[in-house]
């Protein structure tokens, strides 16, 4: 999903600092839809400065050149700053919550799988388990696929968040 064959990654991550004002998300979403840009995922969160929020947008760079997406986004008056994160230069994380249909005899298999992935069992029912994994998106994809064998009843993924990878020299 994150890469098209062995070529360039299809997606790029934009970390967008926006003013924390009513309607900002609609402005960003409206821009993407009217310009025909595709989004893989979108995560919104407050920042340590209450005037601003941060959007982490995973953009499909096959739908439009990244530069054009960035320049159009930057024209939105409420967009304060945009940083581009190439997938190879970013640490990405995504959280998955899934409820799996599994009766008592096979419960152990799922718990073992969760253990292998270093996830967590967060809720247990008579014939269901809700499990969680926070990891890089490819690993989360693998986990989801393996869980699928047991029957996923409900699934929720957050979309990815990302920060730049740190270099080996000291930050200033």
């Amino acid at each position: 999903m994150s890469s098209a064959g062995d070529g360039e990654p299809r997606h790029h991550i934009l970390s967008v600092l926006v003013e924390n004002k009513a309607g900002v998300l609609a402005r960003v979403a409206g821009l993407f839809s009217r310009r025909g840009f595709n989004i893989f995922s979108l995560a919104v969160a407050p920042t340590d400065d209450e005037r601003f929020s941060r959007l982490t947008i995973v953009v499909d760079v096959e739908s439009a050149p990244l530069e054009q997406v960035v320049q159009q986004l930057d024209k939105l008056v409420n967009v304060v700053a945009i940083s581009q994160l190439a997938p190879e230069a970013a640490v990405e994380r995504e959280l998955l919550l899934a409820t799996v249909a599994v009766d008592a005899p096979r419960r152990g298999e799922v718990i073992e799988l969760v253990g292998v992935f270093r996830g967590e069992v967060v809720n247990v029912g008579l014939d269901r388990l809700t499990v969680m994994l926070a990891d890089d998106p490819d690993t989360v994809d693998d986990f989801e696929r393996l869980l699928g064998a047991y029957g996923i009843v409900e699934l929720q993924r957050t979309g990815r968040v990302a920060l730049p990878k740190l270099g080996r020299s000291k930050a200033d």
């Binding site: 009513a22 309607g23 609609a26 402005r27 409206g30 821009l31 009217r34 939105l76 008056v77 409420n78």
Partner: peptide
Amino acid sequence: ITGVTMGITKHNWL
């Protein structure tokens, strides 16, 4: 109207 005109104004304010 701010919703309607979002895509056809440089910016709008409520």
